[in-house]
Each structure stands twice: as structure tokens, then as C-alpha cells.
Computed example of a mutant assay.
Amino acid sequence: MKEFMSNKEALQHCIANKHFSLAHLYSDEKPLDMHIHDCYEIYYSISGGKQFLIDNRFYTIEPGDIFFINQYESHHLTQIDARIHERIVISIHPDYLSSISSAITDLGHCFTHRDTEYPHKFHLDPDLGTRFIYLIHKIAAAEGFGTDLTERSALTELMIFLNRFFNESRFLTCNQAVTTNHAQVDDILSYINQHISEDLTLEKLSEYFYLSSSYLCRIFKSTTGTTINKYITARRITIAKSLLNEGCSVTETYEKCGFNDYSNFLKAFTKAVGISPKKYAQFHS
């Protein structure tokens, strides 16, 4: 299997082919804004040194950390600097993972059965990390006759390994502290997520937290790496995708997500997801 050197290209390949892709990255490419996509993502850090904002949670990234992110969770890699940051990112289309699962073994379990109190971040000790890298190399080395079956077999083995690890680890880490560089931003994130369906404006946030608009914007951007408006929009789109998958109408969806009119919802959703909410609902019904 081809190892991509760009996470963006790997993600595009995964979505276009409804398959899976592998990116082994050493240096930083231009980071994506707070974003969501129609693929599961496994993010394994080899060198650490960065920070993840996933929905309303911050995580510092250390060597050996692994993240499970589903297709409804907005995320953004922050604290971009000059350090080399080696990591492996696997993008998997949910339909493909479902196709290689069985009636009694759901390989997407680690993405779909993480309750809200459980973290996205887990840690592979050196032995488990070695096992993970071995399975990644097994996928990457597949070539020649039967490549597709070799790739599928290796991915199946990897996902069985990761789901077993997930089930054994999640109860041990559910109380793990989420780290952040600014307690005020934690409060802001919590407030936004509790009031996401309401008319959230910078003025209202400033008034509620007794902070000037400029200071509020500055601490939020410096801590999260994204702006308040981009964060709010990304969270609303994430919720919209989930509601549309559950069968809600487009009208119900944009009202529940806090968009003040359909035109704004249509524009934001189409830009973030690549298709209109109506088409998205048709494809995922």
C-alpha cells in the first residue's frame, strides 16, 4: 500500500475510494482548520510535542499516544512549531470497515462505542507500540499478487488488536485529566457546547465571561489554534451530520444546531462536508 506523505492527500484518497489510507508523516504540512470528515481516524504519535483539540477537549500529545476519532467529531491539531513531529495517521471509511467486520465482531467498535466521559486519547506502552508499528509495516509492505487481500487481512488484524486494547483500556482512563494551557478557555469551550443550539455571538460570550471581545478572541486563538467562530461552526456541523444520520429533516437539523437561517446552514455545511445537507441525508439514510 502506498504510504502518503500528506495527510490531506491520504484523506482525499480514503473518501474518494471509500477504502482506507495510510500516512506516515515527519514534518508539518499546513494544518487544516477545525474540521470533520466522513472517515474514521487513528492518530498515532511517535515523537509527540503537539496538542489536539477534539470537540470540546484538549489533549497534549506525547510519544506513544494514540487517538480514536470518529466521523462526527471536529478536530484540530494545534501548537504547530518547527519541531519534527513524526506520526502515523490511518483514515478508514466506515462503510469499508463495516464490510470487513462480521456479525459478531464490529471492527468499528472503538469509534462508535466511546461514551462521552471516555477520552479520545490512549497510550501504547513500548511493547504495544512495537506491535502497532509491525502491523502498520505489514499493511504498507503489501504488493504484487493478492495485494488487496493482504491489505484487508493486515488491516483486520490491526483493528482486532486496537479494539482489544480499547476495551481493556477505556475504563482505566475514563477519569484521565484533559490538559489545557488556559483554564478560561476550558470554561469557554464548556459554555459553547452547552449552548450550541442558541444564538452564540462574540458579544454574548464577552458579556457572560466579563472579558473584552479582543482578549477573548486572543486567548481562544492562542490556546486552541482556531477562532471562536470557526470552532462554533465546526461543532454545529458535527452535530448536524449526526442528526441527519439519525433521520432528522434538514429543517429540524439546522434549527437544532443553532444556525439562524437555512442559507447560512447550507453554505457552512456544503463548505465543510463537500455536499449539501440534503444530498448528505440521502447518501446516509
Rank of each mutant, 00 (worst) to 15 (best):
residue 2 K to D: 07
residue 7 N to W: 10
residue 10 A to V: 01
residue 11 L to I: 02
residue 16 A to C: 03
residue 17 N to S: 10
residue 18 K to A: 08
residue 18 K to R: 14
residue 19 H to T: 03
residue 28 D to R: 07
residue 39 C to S: 15
residue 41 E to G: 01
residue 41 E to H: 02
residue 46 I to C: 02
residue 46 I to A: 10
residue 48 G to V: 07
residue 48 G to Q: 06
residue 51 Q to I: 01
residue 55 D to A: 06
residue 56 N to P: 01
residue 57 R to M: 09
residue 57 R to F: 05
residue 60 T to I: 05
residue 62 E to A: 11
residue 62 E to S: 10
residue 64 G to R: 02
residue 64 G to I: 01
residue 66 I to E: 07
residue 66 I to Y: 09
residue 68 F to T: 02
residue 71 Q to T: 08
residue 72 Y to S: 07
residue 74 S to H: 08
residue 74 S to T: 12
residue 75 H to I: 01
residue 75 H to M: 04
residue 79 Q to P: 00
residue 80 I to S: 13
residue 81 D to W: 01
residue 84 I to R: 07
residue 92 I to G: 01
residue 93 H to N: 08
residue 100 I to G: 08
residue 101 S to T: 07
residue 101 S to W: 06
residue 106 D to E: 04
residue 106 D to C: 02
residue 106 D to Q: 01
residue 113 H to A: 05
residue 114 R to A: 14
residue 115 D to I: 08
residue 116 T to H: 04
residue 117 E to S: 06
residue 117 E to N: 11
residue 119 P to Q: 03
residue 124 L to R: 08
residue 125 D to E: 13
residue 127 D to T: 15
residue 127 D to F: 13
residue 131 R to Q: 15
residue 133 I to R: 15
residue 135 L to P: 02
residue 135 L to I: 01
residue 136 I to M: 14
residue 138 K to T: 15
residue 139 I to P: 02
residue 142 A to P: 09
residue 143 E to Q: 15
residue 146 G to H: 10
residue 149 L to E: 13
residue 149 L to Y: 13
residue 150 T to R: 14
residue 151 E to T: 04
residue 156 T to M: 06
residue 158 L to G: 02
residue 159 M to S: 00
residue 160 I to N: 12
residue 160 I to Q: 11
residue 163 N to H: 03
residue 163 N to F: 00
residue 166 F to N: 08
residue 168 E to P: 03
residue 170 R to C: 06
residue 174 C to D: 11
residue 175 N to D: 10
residue 186 D to K: 11
residue 188 I to L: 09
residue 192 I to M: 04
residue 193 N to M: 01
residue 194 Q to F: 11
residue 195 H to Y: 07
residue 201 T to Q: 04
residue 203 E to P: 03
residue 206 S to K: 05
residue 207 E to L: 10
residue 207 E to S: 09
residue 209 F to A: 06
residue 211 L to A: 08
residue 211 L to M: 15
residue 213 S to L: 04
residue 213 S to D: 08
residue 214 S to W: 05
residue 217 C to H: 12
residue 217 C to L: 15
residue 218 R to L: 12
residue 221 K to I: 13
residue 222 S to F: 14
residue 225 G to Q: 09
residue 227 T to P: 02
residue 229 N to E: 15
residue 233 T to W: 06
residue 235 R to Q: 15
residue 235 R to E: 07
residue 237 I to F: 08
residue 240 A to K: 12
residue 240 A to D: 10
residue 244 L to H: 01
residue 244 L to T: 10
residue 245 N to Y: 06
residue 247 G to R: 10
residue 252 E to N: 14
residue 256 K to A: 15
residue 260 N to Q: 14
residue 263 S to N: 14
residue 264 N to W: 09
residue 271 K to F: 11
residue 271 K to Q: 15
residue 275 I to K: 07
residue 277 P to T: 14
residue 277 P to H: 09
residue 278 K to D: 05
residue 279 K to L: 12
residue 279 K to F: 06
residue 279 K to C: 12
residue 281 A to Q: 12
residue 283 F to T: 05
